[in-house]
Amino acid sequence: MGHSKAFHPTYDNEGIKELQSNPALAIETIMDTYGDEIKRLVFAYMKNSADTDDVTQEVFVTIYQKLNTFQGNSSLRSWIYSIAINKCKDHLRSWQSRNKRLKEKLISSSQSMKTVELTPEEMTLQKDNSSELFQKVMDLPIKYREVIILFYFKDLSTKEIAKVLTMNEATVRTRLNRGRSKLKECLSSEKGGVSHG
């Protein structure tokens, strides 16, 4: 193990070929490099740790299966993000997931008097970002939430986001602007913008 070559996170063509020639080492390397990052991205879609664990596992299985199809037309990180986001959306679309989320909502509303303990993912996210602001981002509709998270918290350019989400760059910019406006509305209304009575 001590002699395995360390790959630079940008992965040039040589690095990619070497990863593709040894999928077992590749998945270990990719998990070491991107594991936490992908888990946090998945959590931003799933919003609970059980689904996050399941989907993250699926993401890495898919990366392992599809690694040889990676052509290098985008960065490895963007390619991995595309897989992760597609898996999240598949999961959210599935009937089982919707049904489970509805049950969770009913259970959590009946337990709302209890103290809520943060999951490790939530704690990490809250350490990484201003927790109040991040919570507001998490409350946005998914089409705004995903572009804001990818742009501000994952440092992807609008061009990269367009590639990852398979949409045009103008749509990404529009959603970013609308998402920002919605965030401003939430934050200003919380600061007592409107008073009743």
Rank of each mutant, 00 (worst) to 15 (best):
N168F: 11
A50P: 00
T171Q: 14
E28F: 09
K127A: 08
S4L: 13
S109Q: 10
D51V: 03
V55H: 00
I148V: 15
W95R: 10
A162M: 06
Y34H: 10
F134H: 08
K154M: 03
S195H: 10
S21F: 05
E117N: 04
T69R: 02
I27D: 11
K105T: 09
S4Q: 15
W79P: 01
V172C: 07
E185A: 10
S110M: 13
L183T: 05
D36W: 04
A162E: 04
V59T: 02
K191E: 15
Q126G: 13
I38E: 01
R180E: 15
K184I: 15
I149V: 14
E169N: 12
A84E: 00
K87P: 01
L19P: 00
E18Q: 08
R101L: 14
T62Q: 11
V59Y: 03
D36K: 07
I83S: 02
T10K: 12
Q20L: 00
V59W: 00
K103L: 04
D155P: 04
K17T: 09
Y64R: 10
L25I: 05
A84L: 04
E146F: 05
H8K: 05
K89R: 15
Q111M: 14
I148H: 04
Q135G: 12
K127C: 09
N177L: 11
V61I: 14
E121D: 15
T171H: 12
G197V: 07
R98T: 11
L165S: 00
F134L: 07
L125W: 06
T166V: 12
L150H: 04
S109R: 08
L150V: 01
A84Q: 01
K39A: 12
W95P: 02
G15F: 06
L125F: 11
Q126A: 08
G15L: 03
A24L: 12
D139R: 03
S78W: 02
I38D: 02
I149F: 08
S49H: 06
S130Y: 10
A50K: 03
D155R: 08
C186N: 07
R145C: 04
H3L: 10
K39D: 07
K159S: 13
S130V: 14
L102G: 05
K5N: 03
M31E: 06
E169L: 07
V147P: 02
F151C: 13
T10Y: 04
S94F: 08
M46P: 01
L67I: 06
R93D: 14
E58V: 09
I142N: 13
K100P: 00
G2E: 13
I27H: 08
S110H: 04
T158D: 05
F7T: 02
Y81S: 01
K114F: 06
I80K: 01
V194R: 10
Q65E: 07
S130T: 11
L150T: 01
Q20P: 01
T10A: 14
K154P: 02
S130R: 09
N48F: 04
P23M: 04
S82T: 08
E169F: 05
Q65G: 05
N68H: 09
P141D: 13
T115W: 00
L140T: 15
Y152E: 11
N68S: 12
F134A: 01
F153H: 12
K143M: 10
N22W: 05
T166L: 15
K47C: 06
I38V: 06
K39V: 09
F153Y: 15
S195E: 13
H91T: 10
S74D: 03
